[in-house]
Amino acid sequence: MSSSNINLKELFLNGIVKENTIFKLALSLCPSIAVTNNLKNGVFMGAAVLFVQLMVNITISLIRNIIQPKVRLPIFMLVISGWVTVTQLLMAAFVPDVYSKVGLYIALIVAFASILARAEMFASKNSIVPSMVDGLGMGIGFLFALTVISFFRELVGKGSLWGYAIINTKPLLILILPAGGFFAVGILMALFNWINARYAAKAAAGSH
């Protein structure tokens, strides 16, 4: 497949809207509930996944022609864990306070189905530019989802954003507790799909 017949814009949007890891595929829900009780953790977690996804896609795409098909999965895993280690070290060096809270989940990125799936299904079959765009799209989709969830949870649960107090009323405390994480993800997932459905219906009506 040459890169010319792939619509890069569509590919980019695919990861954000059509195949959004959390809101559409319902994958990686564990970190999306565990680390999203404040915006800072959510954003850094999302950024870490974005970085790993992008770098893994680029690496796999670069070495795709020299990988023995029989051992491709272990090699993918090696590449992923390599980049996760890089991310861990970077975060531990530059944002130690965040790393102390989300470090465990950063390590868990190795096991993310979405990252391995993109490596296997896309990067190992496509050249570097589409793979990069695909990684960016998927990563930004994840970052977007985590940002929205943690924004909602911190604002409504604690009345603050990024640690700064915003509103001075009694917050809905349950949202920053684990039980509230399920509520938040469920409500936002429903909202995301509802908006999408409406948008799709409008687009369909417009094209006729």
Binding site: K170, L172, L173, I174, L175, L177, A179
Partner: peptide, 10 residues
């Protein structure tokens, strides 16, 4: 339960 967890004081 939701109310008790959300507004434990009230």
């Amino acid at each position: 339960a939701f109310a008790l967890i959300s507004w434990p004081k009230a």
